[in-house]
Amino acid sequence: MNIERLPTVVAFGGGHGLSASLGALRRITDRLTAIVTVADDGGSSGRIRAELDCLPPGDLRMALAALCGDDESGRTWADVLQYRFPGDGSLGGHAIGNLLIAGLWQRLGGDPVAGLEMVARLLGARGRVLPMSAVPLEIEADVVGLDPSVPDEVGTVHGQEKVAKTTAEVRAVRLIPADPPASVQAVQAVRDADWLILGPGSWFTSVIPHLLVPQLAEAIVDTGARRILTLNVQSDAETKGASAARHLELLAEHAPALRLDVVLADSSFVRDDPHLESYATSLGAELVVADIAHRDGSARHDPLRLAATYAEVMGV
């Protein structure tokens, strides 16, 4: 690897998908920024969000943990951030990292970026973590099959947790408010980047929402950076058996102006999908197929194999 050519990379997402991407990317560059969804309304994040009227910290915490180093100190800090208090009391279920982040936000007058950067310095994180919006958001979805007695009727599901868990077919999502302010630092990071990475992750609640924040979406579309879309290893609970090509179609429906340079897919997901390459081409992208799934057969990306593929695509 030529360290003089380390790229500046911005990765978008939330939860486990973004963690997988960051775990790979930090192995090939330290010029790395994670831009994270802020619509979580469940679990510890939802409780903190409701009580303190702040951004939900959970996905931000997971991104910070993913950027910790592989040495003993880094892994210890990652474990501490992710540790949850047991029991059913007032602290039960809260992650230590969520409380740390929320506490710093309170102490620093509610400045979310300053708090996140202080945590990143404490952890020795290899990169920055930024919220995609300066305000907490809500996700609302149009779904079909919500009521089994009228399976073709279109209904509405409100809230990220409910959208992620619905048994109905999700057709479209939107943000509330519909025109939220983007994080100023996130927009600037996109403008300064060499590469943008969308996905992997929950398609409707982690990947697409970034394209629904107008200022951020405009920056993603207009940037001179090259754009990679990393598909999941297989369809997830939100897309329920949808083909890889259908994932591209859903993305295009929510962001018609978006063009891509590379669509990265695991070989197992593209098997028997005759339309994927033509869909990728229609978005301006080269389809890159590689064995990037974890060897244990789970629906996860292997960080080392994904890192090697990213490095090859970026030429580092």
Rank of each mutant, 00 (worst) to 15 (best):
residue 92 G to P: 09
residue 85 F to H: 13
residue 189 A to S: 15
residue 200 P to D: 08
residue 131 P to H: 10
residue 171 R to Y: 03
residue 138 E to N: 13
residue 163 V to C: 10
residue 183 S to Q: 03
residue 120 A to D: 03
residue 197 I to E: 00
residue 217 A to K: 07
residue 166 T to A: 15
residue 81 L to E: 02
residue 192 D to F: 02
residue 176 I to W: 13
residue 190 V to K: 01
residue 196 L to V: 11
residue 178 A to I: 05
residue 176 I to A: 11
residue 99 L to A: 15
residue 82 Q to G: 07
residue 198 L to N: 07
residue 94 H to I: 09
residue 107 R to H: 07
residue 205 T to D: 06
residue 115 G to F: 02
residue 84 R to H: 14
residue 115 G to L: 04
residue 87 G to W: 03
residue 207 V to R: 04
residue 100 L to V: 15
residue 209 P to V: 12
residue 209 P to N: 04
residue 118 M to Q: 12
residue 97 G to F: 02
residue 80 V to W: 05
residue 195 W to E: 04
residue 174 R to D: 13
residue 128 R to S: 13
residue 205 T to C: 02
residue 171 R to T: 12
residue 95 A to V: 05
residue 117 E to V: 01
residue 185 Q to W: 03
residue 174 R to C: 06
residue 120 A to R: 14
residue 201 G to T: 12
residue 103 G to A: 10
residue 110 G to M: 04
residue 155 G to E: 09
residue 193 A to N: 11
residue 125 A to W: 12
residue 216 L to V: 13
residue 111 D to P: 07
residue 79 D to W: 11
residue 157 V to A: 11
residue 210 H to D: 14
residue 148 P to K: 14
residue 180 P to G: 13
residue 151 P to K: 12
residue 210 H to C: 06
residue 144 V to T: 15
residue 109 G to Q: 03
residue 112 P to L: 05
residue 170 V to C: 03
residue 157 V to L: 10
residue 206 S to E: 05
residue 173 V to P: 12
residue 172 A to M: 08
residue 138 E to Q: 14
residue 215 Q to E: 07
residue 142 D to A: 12
residue 158 H to E: 09
residue 76 T to V: 13
residue 164 A to S: 11
residue 149 S to A: 05
residue 167 T to K: 02
residue 196 L to P: 02
residue 106 Q to S: 07
residue 211 L to E: 03
residue 153 E to L: 09
residue 99 L to H: 02
residue 81 L to N: 00
residue 182 A to T: 07
residue 117 E to Y: 00
residue 186 A to L: 10
residue 185 Q to F: 01
residue 98 N to D: 01
residue 139 I to V: 14
residue 202 S to P: 07
residue 167 T to H: 04
residue 140 E to S: 08
residue 121 R to G: 06
residue 138 E to L: 13
residue 182 A to E: 09
residue 219 A to L: 05
residue 141 A to M: 06
residue 155 G to R: 05
residue 197 I to Q: 07
residue 83 Y to E: 00
residue 89 G to V: 15
residue 209 P to F: 01
residue 117 E to M: 13
residue 158 H to K: 08
residue 123 L to I: 09
residue 87 G to C: 07
residue 109 G to A: 06
residue 128 R to K: 15
residue 109 G to P: 00
residue 98 N to E: 11
residue 96 I to N: 00
residue 183 S to E: 06
residue 197 I to L: 11
residue 204 F to R: 10
residue 176 I to L: 12
residue 137 L to V: 07
residue 118 M to W: 01
residue 86 P to E: 12
residue 141 A to C: 10
residue 116 L to N: 01
residue 112 P to T: 09
residue 157 V to G: 06
residue 95 A to K: 00
residue 156 T to L: 12
residue 87 G to Y: 06
residue 198 L to K: 10
residue 178 A to R: 14
residue 116 L to T: 05
residue 140 E to M: 10
residue 81 L to H: 00
residue 117 E to C: 02
residue 167 T to Q: 12
residue 101 I to H: 04
residue 85 F to K: 02
residue 139 I to W: 10
residue 210 H to G: 09
residue 105 W to Q: 09
residue 188 Q to H: 12
residue 219 A to P: 00
residue 214 P to F: 03
residue 207 V to N: 00
residue 101 I to Q: 04
residue 205 T to S: 11
residue 175 L to V: 08
residue 163 V to R: 08
residue 94 H to P: 13
residue 142 D to I: 11
residue 122 L to K: 00
residue 100 L to M: 13
residue 111 D to R: 02
residue 138 E to P: 03
residue 127 G to S: 06
